[in-house]
């Protein structure tokens, strides 16, 4: 089990998590995550190779409801629009995803 993190590992995780890190943050995280990961590896001592049992957190039950709209049209629209960083009328504005070459 990997318990020592390298800087490249932190960079990979940061890119998966969509967080830009400074060099200083990366260095701190190498140490922090290494010690935390080696600590949490103790979990294998509780549940070693018990592959027969299925994990289960609480009682399981299905919750059904009719597929119906329960709020009024536009009940929340303006409030939600107000929280958006950038809008154009009833539209949310985002940066382009594809770059034109």
């Amino acid at each position: 089990m990997l318990s020592t993190m390298k800087k490249e590992d932190i960079e990979h995780l940061a890119s998966l998590a969509r967080i830009k890190l400074t060099e200083e943050e990366k260095e701190g995280l190498v140490g922090d995550l290494s010690s935390i990961v080696s600590y949490v590896s103790e979990v294998s001592e509780i549940a070693s190779d018990d592959i027969d049992s299925q994990p289960q957190v609480g009682p399981r039950f299905n919750v059904f409801r009719a597929d119906e709209v329960t709020n009024e049209a536009d009940e929340y629209t303006q409030d939600v629009l107000n929280e958006m960083p950038d809008t154009d009328g009833r539209f949310m504005k985002v940066k382009k995803i594809l770059k034109a070459e």
Binding site: V43, S44, I46, P55
Partner: peptide, 13 residues
């Protein structure tokens, strides 16, 4: 190794 084991640990607890 991690999440699966941790959820099993919860069950055993």
């Amino acid at each position: 190794a991690y999440y699966g084991k941790a959820e099993l640990a919860r069950k055993k607890m």
